[in-house]
Amino acid sequence: MSPELVTLGVTTFLTLVVIMDPPGTVPVFLALTSSMQRAQRISAARQAVLVALGVIIAFTLFGRLIFDFLHVSVPAFQASGGLLLLLVALDLLTGKAEDPSPSATGVNVALVPLGTPLLAGPGAIVASMLAVENSDRSPAAWAVIMVAILLVHACLYLAMRFAGIIHRILKDGGVTVVTRLAGMLLAAIAVQLIADAVIAFARTV
Protein backbone atom coordinates (compact mmCIF):
# COMPACT_ATOMS: atom_id res chain seq x y z
CA MET A 1 0.00 0.00 0.00
CA SER A 2 1.32 3.41 -0.98
CA PRO A 3 2.12 6.07 1.64
CA GLU A 4 -0.64 8.26 0.17
CA LEU A 5 -3.25 5.59 0.84
CA VAL A 6 -1.95 5.00 4.35
CA THR A 7 -2.12 8.72 5.06
CA LEU A 8 -5.63 8.89 3.61
CA GLY A 9 -6.83 5.99 5.75
CA VAL A 10 -5.24 7.22 8.97
CA THR A 11 -6.43 10.79 8.42
CA THR A 12 -9.98 9.69 7.66
CA PHE A 13 -10.08 7.38 10.68
CA LEU A 14 -8.67 9.91 13.14
CA THR A 15 -10.87 12.72 11.85
CA LEU A 16 -14.04 10.66 12.22
CA VAL A 17 -12.99 9.36 15.64
CA VAL A 18 -12.49 12.90 16.89
CA ILE A 19 -15.80 14.10 15.43
CA MET A 20 -17.97 11.08 16.32
CA ASP A 21 -16.16 10.66 19.68
CA PRO A 22 -16.93 7.04 20.77
CA PRO A 23 -16.14 7.65 24.48
CA GLY A 24 -18.19 10.84 24.46
CA THR A 25 -21.28 9.01 23.19
CA VAL A 26 -21.41 6.80 26.30
CA PRO A 27 -23.05 9.30 28.71
CA VAL A 28 -25.62 10.41 26.13
CA PHE A 29 -26.32 6.78 25.22
CA LEU A 30 -26.79 5.90 28.89
CA ALA A 31 -29.14 8.84 29.36
CA LEU A 32 -31.31 8.03 26.36
CA THR A 33 -31.50 4.32 27.18
CA SER A 34 -31.72 4.57 30.98
CA SER A 35 -35.21 3.03 31.03
CA MET A 36 -34.21 0.06 28.84
CA GLN A 37 -33.24 -3.43 29.88
CA ARG A 38 -29.79 -4.78 29.02
CA ALA A 39 -30.98 -6.60 25.90
CA GLN A 40 -32.85 -3.53 24.69
CA ARG A 41 -29.80 -1.34 25.25
CA ILE A 42 -27.59 -3.69 23.24
CA SER A 43 -30.16 -3.76 20.45
CA ALA A 44 -30.36 0.04 20.47
CA ALA A 45 -26.57 0.27 20.21
CA ARG A 46 -26.53 -2.09 17.24
CA GLN A 47 -29.36 -0.30 15.46
CA ALA A 48 -27.88 3.14 16.08
CA VAL A 49 -24.51 2.12 14.67
CA LEU A 50 -26.12 0.50 11.61
CA VAL A 51 -28.19 3.61 10.97
CA ALA A 52 -25.15 5.87 11.34
CA LEU A 53 -23.09 3.61 9.09
CA GLY A 54 -25.77 3.64 6.41
CA VAL A 55 -26.08 7.42 6.53
CA ILE A 56 -22.32 8.01 6.43
CA ILE A 57 -21.77 5.58 3.53
CA ALA A 58 -24.70 7.06 1.59
CA PHE A 59 -23.35 10.59 1.93
CA THR A 60 -19.79 9.42 1.21
CA LEU A 61 -20.94 7.95 -2.08
CA PHE A 62 -23.68 10.37 -3.11
CA GLY A 63 -23.43 13.37 -0.76
CA ARG A 64 -22.31 15.91 -3.31
CA LEU A 65 -25.01 14.81 -5.76
CA ILE A 66 -27.69 14.96 -3.05
CA PHE A 67 -26.70 18.45 -1.93
CA ASP A 68 -26.49 19.76 -5.49
CA PHE A 69 -29.84 18.21 -6.45
CA LEU A 70 -31.66 19.68 -3.44
CA HIS A 71 -29.78 22.99 -3.66
CA VAL A 72 -28.79 22.61 -0.02
CA SER A 73 -25.54 24.12 1.23
CA VAL A 74 -23.27 22.47 3.79
CA PRO A 75 -23.81 25.32 6.32
CA ALA A 76 -27.59 24.88 6.06
CA PHE A 77 -27.22 21.17 6.74
CA GLN A 78 -24.90 21.89 9.64
CA ALA A 79 -27.31 24.39 11.19
CA SER A 80 -30.24 21.97 10.98
CA GLY A 81 -28.18 19.25 12.67
CA GLY A 82 -27.22 21.69 15.41
CA LEU A 83 -30.87 22.56 16.07
CA LEU A 84 -31.81 18.87 16.33
CA LEU A 85 -28.99 18.23 18.80
CA LEU A 86 -30.04 21.27 20.83
CA LEU A 87 -33.54 19.82 21.25
CA VAL A 88 -32.04 16.54 22.46
CA ALA A 89 -29.77 18.43 24.87
CA LEU A 90 -32.74 20.29 26.35
CA ASP A 91 -34.52 16.98 26.96
CA LEU A 92 -31.45 15.65 28.76
CA LEU A 93 -31.14 18.77 30.91
CA THR A 94 -34.80 18.76 31.91
CA GLY A 95 -34.96 15.01 32.51
CA LYS A 96 -37.50 14.34 29.75
CA ALA A 97 -35.15 11.86 28.10
CA GLU A 98 -35.44 9.66 31.19
CA ASP A 99 -39.24 9.34 31.02
CA PRO A 100 -40.36 5.85 29.95
CA SER A 101 -42.28 6.76 26.82
CA PRO A 102 -42.55 4.89 23.49
CA SER A 103 -40.01 7.22 21.93
CA ALA A 104 -37.54 6.52 24.73
CA THR A 105 -37.98 2.77 24.94
CA GLY A 106 -38.53 1.77 21.33
CA VAL A 107 -36.50 1.68 18.19
CA ASN A 108 -36.99 5.43 17.58
CA VAL A 109 -34.23 6.29 20.05
CA ALA A 110 -31.79 4.20 18.02
CA LEU A 111 -32.83 5.99 14.84
CA VAL A 112 -33.20 9.55 16.16
CA PRO A 113 -31.30 11.03 17.90
CA LEU A 114 -28.71 8.25 18.39
CA GLY A 115 -28.14 7.08 14.82
CA THR A 116 -28.56 10.56 13.46
CA PRO A 117 -27.78 13.35 14.18
CA LEU A 118 -25.75 12.27 17.24
CA LEU A 119 -23.51 9.71 15.56
CA ALA A 120 -23.98 10.51 11.88
CA GLY A 121 -24.07 14.27 12.36
CA PRO A 122 -23.19 17.11 10.01
CA GLY A 123 -19.53 17.06 11.03
CA ALA A 124 -19.08 13.35 10.34
CA ILE A 125 -20.98 13.54 7.06
CA VAL A 126 -18.97 16.50 5.80
CA ALA A 127 -15.70 14.88 6.93
CA SER A 128 -16.47 11.70 5.01
CA MET A 129 -17.37 13.72 1.92
CA LEU A 130 -14.13 15.71 2.18
CA ALA A 131 -12.12 12.48 2.44
CA VAL A 132 -13.43 11.54 -0.99
CA GLU A 133 -12.80 15.03 -2.36
CA ASN A 134 -9.17 14.91 -1.16
CA SER A 135 -8.47 11.48 -2.67
CA ASP A 136 -7.78 10.45 -6.25
CA ARG A 137 -11.04 8.43 -6.21
CA SER A 138 -9.31 5.27 -7.32
CA PRO A 139 -10.75 1.89 -6.25
CA ALA A 140 -7.96 1.57 -3.68
CA ALA A 141 -8.75 5.01 -2.23
CA TRP A 142 -12.45 4.16 -1.97
CA ALA A 143 -11.56 0.90 -0.22
CA VAL A 144 -9.30 2.67 2.29
CA ILE A 145 -11.98 5.26 3.10
CA MET A 146 -14.63 2.57 3.58
CA VAL A 147 -12.35 0.54 5.87
CA ALA A 148 -11.68 3.65 7.97
CA ILE A 149 -15.42 4.32 8.25
CA LEU A 150 -16.10 0.72 9.29
CA LEU A 151 -13.39 0.81 11.96
CA VAL A 152 -14.79 4.01 13.46
CA HIS A 153 -18.27 2.49 13.66
CA ALA A 154 -16.83 -0.63 15.27
CA CYS A 155 -15.35 1.61 17.98
CA LEU A 156 -18.72 3.31 18.42
CA TYR A 157 -20.49 -0.02 18.85
CA LEU A 158 -17.97 -1.28 21.40
CA ALA A 159 -18.29 1.94 23.40
CA MET A 160 -22.09 1.66 23.57
CA ARG A 161 -22.14 -2.13 23.84
CA PHE A 162 -20.28 -2.02 27.14
CA ALA A 163 -22.02 1.11 28.42
CA GLY A 164 -24.07 -1.20 30.65
CA ILE A 165 -20.96 -1.95 32.71
CA ILE A 166 -20.58 1.78 33.32
CA HIS A 167 -24.26 1.93 34.28
CA ARG A 168 -23.78 -0.75 36.93
CA ILE A 169 -20.79 1.11 38.34
CA LEU A 170 -22.45 4.54 38.44
CA LYS A 171 -25.88 3.37 39.66
CA ASP A 172 -29.01 5.45 39.00
CA GLY A 173 -27.75 8.52 40.85
CA GLY A 174 -24.50 8.59 38.92
CA VAL A 175 -26.31 8.16 35.62
CA THR A 176 -28.53 11.15 36.48
CA VAL A 177 -25.47 13.31 37.09
CA VAL A 178 -23.85 12.09 33.87
CA THR A 179 -27.10 12.78 32.02
CA ARG A 180 -27.12 16.42 33.09
CA LEU A 181 -23.45 16.82 32.18
CA ALA A 182 -24.07 15.16 28.82
CA GLY A 183 -26.93 17.57 28.21
CA MET A 184 -24.69 20.56 28.82
CA LEU A 185 -21.92 19.18 26.60
CA LEU A 186 -24.37 18.29 23.85
CA ALA A 187 -25.91 21.77 24.05
CA ALA A 188 -22.44 23.30 23.66
CA ILE A 189 -21.74 21.10 20.63
CA ALA A 190 -25.10 22.06 19.12
CA VAL A 191 -24.49 25.79 19.62
CA GLN A 192 -21.02 25.45 18.11
CA LEU A 193 -22.48 23.75 15.03
CA ILE A 194 -25.03 26.52 14.61
CA ALA A 195 -22.39 29.22 15.16
CA ASP A 196 -20.08 27.65 12.58
CA ALA A 197 -22.98 27.53 10.12
CA VAL A 198 -23.82 31.20 10.73
CA ILE A 199 -20.18 32.20 10.20
CA ALA A 200 -20.07 30.19 6.98
CA PHE A 201 -23.26 31.87 5.80
CA ALA A 202 -21.82 35.30 6.62
CA ARG A 203 -18.70 34.62 4.57
CA THR A 204 -20.81 33.88 1.49
CA VAL A 205 -22.70 37.18 1.72
Score class of each variant (00 low, 15 high):
Leu30Ala: 07
Leu130Ile: 14
Asp196Ile: 07
Val178Gln: 05
Asp136Cys: 02
Ile57Tyr: 02
Gly95Trp: 06
Pro23Cys: 12
Val28Asn: 06
Gly183Ala: 03
Ala44His: 05
Arg38Phe: 05
Val152Ile: 08
Pro139Leu: 06
Ala202Asn: 12
Leu50Gln: 11
Ile199Val: 11
Pro23Glu: 08
Leu92Gly: 04
Leu61Cys: 03
Asp21Arg: 15
Phe67Thr: 15
Ala154Thr: 14
Arg46Tyr: 07
Ala127Met: 10
Gly82Cys: 04
Leu170Asn: 10
Leu70Pro: 11
Thr179Leu: 01
Leu170Pro: 01
Ala163His: 06
Ser73Cys: 03
Pro100Cys: 07
Gly183Asp: 02
Leu181Lys: 07
Gly115Tyr: 01
Leu118His: 08
Pro22Leu: 02
Leu186Ile: 07
Gly174Asp: 03
Met36Cys: 12
Ser73Gly: 13
Ala39Arg: 14
Leu185Gln: 10
Phe62Gln: 13
Val198Arg: 07
Val205Met: 11
Val175Lys: 05
Ile56Phe: 02
Val72Leu: 14
Pro139Arg: 09
Val51Cys: 09
Val175Gln: 10
Val28Tyr: 09
Ser103Glu: 14
Leu70Thr: 15
Gln47Phe: 08
Arg137Val: 08
Ile145Val: 13
Gln78Ile: 05
Leu65Cys: 04
Val72His: 09
Leu16Ala: 14
Leu65Glu: 14
Leu14Thr: 15
Ala163Leu: 02
Leu158Pro: 01
Val191Lys: 06
Val126Phe: 03
Leu158Glu: 01
Leu84Ser: 05
Leu185Trp: 04
Ala45Asp: 01
Gly82Glu: 04
Met1Ala: 13
Ala104Trp: 08
Ala104Asp: 09
Val72Pro: 07
